[in-house]
Simulated assay, not measured.
Amino acid sequence: MSFTIYTATGCTRCKIIKQLMDERGIVFEEQDMKAEGKEAFQKFYAANRKAIFRGPEGVEFPLLTDGTAIRQGIGASIAYLLSGNKLDGFFSAGTLHKEWVDGIHVSGGDPVYAADFMAVLRYLKGNHMKLQIDTNGLNSQILQQILDEQLAEVVIMNVLAPRELYRYMVGSNMDIVEVEKTMTLVTQFPEYKFQTLVAPVLRSEGEIGYLTAKEVGETAKFIAEVTGSMKNPYLIKRFNPKECKDERFKTVKPMAAEDLLPYRTAARNHQVFVEVEKA
């Protein structure tokens, strides 16, 4: 199997991926989109636009393909080179730049492959990258390993809901004790933040509605009870129907920035440092 890697001149992340392929004896062809590979990249992008993430600052490089699969960004590319598709869910294209790597989702992958996941993080750290990871409370044993090895500089925990709704929001038969353990671990990292997305909920009567301000207040209380602190950094985020993969929620009316103000008021009863996502 041979690979094509689409790079950008001066891209440190691209150099790390090429170094890994050289170390492993993996055959690859490089197309530098700022040099002789510009036309090849434009054709590739046009043919695979839906599979390639393009943020406010443009396309995140490198882009790696074996002719079938496409992986974007340093984390997802290393994961695919080392473990194939076993780590899908743990990595996605990131938005941070320079020495920072994000798009690392502790709760998104199968914990059976924890050893493979940790190997990718170690490789990133061994190449002087700083890691920002996120979690929703699942796979707490992996987060414990990351903490023990000091592999992440920043951790963001997506606290989905108050205790009584958490299992419903995760969509699996999870143990709330694992979520509580994750909260405690998160506060031990050099930098951390809790956040809650005001997401739509399918209620028991079949109606769809957003989490209420009261429920977000109860979520903030949940964090305070577990961490023993009302001084955790806490962000309340707006739901974007356009980014939702669940077809049931794509037609939900978007919230305006000012709609989050009652949520902030409710959350500040239990967390002092509450901010709302800006428009």
Rank of each mutant, 00 (worst) to 15 (best):
N173W: 08
Q188C: 05
N240G: 00
D66Q: 14
I208R: 06
V226Y: 09
K231R: 11
G10C: 11
M129N: 06
W100V: 01
Q150I: 09
A152M: 10
Q72S: 08
A224M: 11
L81F: 08
E57Y: 11
F249N: 02
I208Q: 10
L185G: 07
T65W: 03
Q271M: 07
T7R: 03
L138T: 13
T4S: 07
G55K: 00
T219E: 14
N127A: 01
N48H: 15
F90S: 00
L81R: 03
K125S: 15
V154R: 09
E178P: 04
G126H: 13
F44G: 09
G137M: 02
V272P: 09
A115E: 15
E57F: 15
Q150E: 15
F189W: 05
P200T: 04
S107Y: 13
V155D: 04
E178V: 11
E149C: 03
L165R: 03
M33T: 12
L81C: 09
D88M: 06
P254T: 08
A47M: 04
N232Y: 00
A35Y: 07
P241Q: 06
F44Y: 09
E275L: 08
R238Q: 10
D88T: 15
V112K: 15
F189A: 06
V276I: 15
Y168R: 15
A93I: 00
S107C: 07
V272G: 04
E180F: 01
P233M: 02
F194H: 05
R122G: 01
E247C: 05
I133K: 03
V154M: 07
S77Y: 14
Q150T: 08
L202R: 10
S204Q: 02
G206A: 04
K86Y: 09
N232H: 10
Y45G: 06
